[in-house]
Write a protein that binds this DNA or RNA. Structure first.
Length: 603
RNA sequence: GGGGCUGUAGCUCAAUUGGUUAGAGCGCCGGCCUGUCACGCCGGAGGUUGCGGGUUCGAGCCCCGUCAGCCUCGCCA
């Protein structure tokens, strides 16, 4: 009579010494087998873990005969007795105190030899892993990633449920808007020539929910952006999306950081001190060169523009005269860096647009501090040298990297350099989890191409109350750009170890302010009505002050799980070229399908 | 679209300045083995060096092109 595989008594990670003597029914995959000619040992694996099975030819010849034919990844069901391993305990296995003496076995399913071994030990190339994702997901590391993701998601859902947030689903088939990233379009069969767009985020819907009076909303929301991929970006990704009515930034931030602290507790057993530090956007850019600062280590950026203006060094003077800046980072002990290392960095930084990588080493000779190598000869004279040392804070044994150019470029280059050098020189403390909030983002940025301002966040972001006057609300004319660029937004990003976990803002609830913003952004009332009619309309029927935030769930799981790519925490991800190696999506479709949709492909 | 790295057995990798028949570990197949747990021992199969072209007496290695993967800038919050 076949074994009742639907009546498993335990999973393969459950049995302990206290279970000795029990008769158990287990099912799973053959992880490994060791055939001694007589005794056969099988490691049986399922989601719970691994249990060793023992097949004794003397007591159970039939089961033993089957066991000898088993191979990797065969699926079996067994019944047997839990026995102590006596002196042969395996301390490396949670179930290592016991084994199961198998009396009956059913072979449920055979397996071809897998294209790679199902183990964490061997790092297989990712393309193959994605093509055989079913096998890849059997590896403990990947199984743990899926389980961690579940645990984190559940923790977040529970937190918001406990705090009065309603989980509400929003549409997947939406209206296309030109803002932000490229939309994925879905052609309409019923309305040939018209298209739905997949949501880049539920942004507008969650605002509408607040206007609808639902007060607190959250959703584990799938979002879609048709942009190029990165290690931490996928075409489709998951946001923890939330929105609250009658709030200021601090209210949203307090909930989010409390929630993240709970996640850190559950995922890592970590106690995160609250509140998390707040850093202004201006400070983040000045000290770290990016709006997602990694505050686990120092080596912050120092401004040398005033100093550099006093030199005759062309590499500094020319960018300064063009309105740029000169800044540096000081690598502690960096004078020990080899020519090979610094040359390598120079080549790499050229790859992101820098002209080169000026540097000096600081040394001590006969009790005197001297500059060496690189551009030392341009800076070694007094009082230039002393001013460089005092402004940068460099000491003998250090190395100074310089960057000169537009502020945006200098920030980009030094942020890259800071991160790269810190990583390569082992300056990043292990097992450190540095959260922070970045606040006071500018409301507008300047687009040099169109010579116009644009929304840093999105056009519904509320300005800070104290900066409202810079927008000249009472005047029918647009405020000057110089004023507008000073306006700070009620926007905030939460950052962990230099990675943006999420961001949000308080939204505009006044229709006059919203109208002004559209005017400033060059969006005509007609255009605004066309694109956002439902939102503008709703604003006129009593909109509560409201705001929210969205967290990147994939990134959170990636960081807490110690992975270097979000593909590791997504069950079926796409590769860097936006292809799913498993299903081979995207694919061509039939002529009939296209015809029905009224679509003809360009030749 | 730009830059970088990679591509050799099923998997992970090696192969001196260009030099004989391209190797190793794991896996796989066969045999032996009654306490292994990365079992062990013996034997075996397995290769269009991503693909195409060029240089050369001779190319895994050099050159050109192309394809694929990853990282990155642009792009994207």
């Amino acid at each position: 009579m076949p074994l009742e595989y639907n009546k498993r008594t335990h999973d393969c990670g459950a049995l302990r010494g206290s279970d000795v003597g029990k008769t158990v029914l287990l099912s799973g995959w053959v992880d490994n087998f060791r055939d001694h000619g007589g005794m056969v040992f099988i490691d049986l694996r399922d989601r719970g873990g691994i249990t060793q099975l023992r097949f004794n030819p003397d007591t159970d010849p039939a089961a033993h005969g089957v066991a000898r034919t088993l191979r990797s990844e065969y699926v079996i069901c067994i019944r047997g007795e839990v026995v102590s391993r006596g002196t042969n305990v395996n301390p490396k296995m949670p179930t290592g105190e016991v084994e199961v003496a198998v009396h009956e076995i059913d072979l449920l399913s055979k397996s071809k030899t897998p294209p790679f071994q199902i183990t964490d030990d061997v790092e297989t190339n990712e393309d193959l892993r994605l093509e055989y994702r079913v096998l890849d997901l059997r590896r403990p590391r990947m199984r743990n990633a899926m389980m961690l993701r579940h645990k984190i998601t559940k923790t977040i859902r529970d937190y918001f449920d406990r705090n009065g947030f309603l989980d509400i689903e929003t549409p997947i088939l939406c209206k296309s808007t030109p803002e932000g990233a490229r939309d994925f379009l879905v052609p309409s069969r019923v309305h040939n020539g018209s298209f739905y767009a997949l949501p880049q985020s539920p942004q507008i819907f969650k605002q509408l929910l607040m206007m609808a009076g639902l007060d607190r909303y959250m959703q584990v929301a799938r979002c879609f952006r048709d942009e190029d991929q990165r290690a931490d970006r996928q075409l489709e990704f998951t946001q923890i999306d939330l929105e609250m009515a009658f709030v200021q930034p601090e209210d949203v931030m307090r909930h989010v950081e409390a929630c993240l602290a709970e996640v850190a507790q559950v995922a890592l057993g970590l106690k995160v001190p609250l509140p998390m530090p707040r850093i202004s956007y201006a400070e983040a850019m000045a000290k770290y060169g990016k709006d997602a600062p990694d505050i686990r280590y120092e080596m912050t950026i120092k401004d040398l523009s005033v100093f550099a203006a006093k030199t005759d060094f062309k590499v500094f003077r020319e960018p300064l005269d063009a309105g740029g800046v000169v800044r540096c980072i000081v690598v502690p002990g960096g004078a020990a860096m080899t020519r090979k290392e610094t040359d390598g960095l120079t080549e790499e930084i050229k790859g992101i647009g820098a002209g080169g990588l000026p540097l000096v080493k600081v040394a001590e000779e006969g009790g005197k501090v001297v500059l060496q190598t690189g551009i030392a000869k341009f800076l070694d004279a007094e009082p230039i040298k002393s001013e460089l040392l005092s402004t940068s804070g460099a000491k003998p044994g250090d190395l100074i990297f310089f960057a000169a150019g537009s502020e945006a470029n200098v920030c980009k280059w030094l942020a890259w350099l800071r991160g790269t050098v810190a990583e390569r020189r082992g300056m990043i403390p292990k097992d450190t989890w540095a959260f922070c909030w970045v606040v006071d983002f500018p409301l507008f940025g300047w687009d040099d191409d169109s010579k116009n301002i644009f929304s840093m966040h999105h056009p519904f972001t509320s300005p800070k109350d104290e900066d409202l006057h810079l927008m000249h609300l009472d005047s029918p004319n647009p405020a000057p750009a110089s004023d507008l660029l000073k306006v700070r937004a009620k926007a905030y990003d939460v950052v962990l170890n230099g990675v943006e976990l999420g961001g949000g803002s308080i939204r505009i609830h006044r229709s006059d302010v919203q109208a002004k913003i559209f005017q400033l952004l060059g969006i005509s009332p007609e255009e605004a009505k066309l694109k956002f009619e439902y939102l503008i309309e709703a604003l006129q029927y009593g909109a509560p002050p409201h705001g929210g935030l969205a967290l990147g769930l994939d990134r959170i799981v990636m960081l807490f799980g110690g992975f270097s790519s979000i593909r590791e925490v997504i069950a079926f991800p796409k590769n860097a070229k936006a292809i799913d190696p498993l299903t081979k999506a995207p694919s061509e479709v039939s002529a009939e399908q296209l015809k029905e949709l009224g679509i003809r492909l360009a030749p």
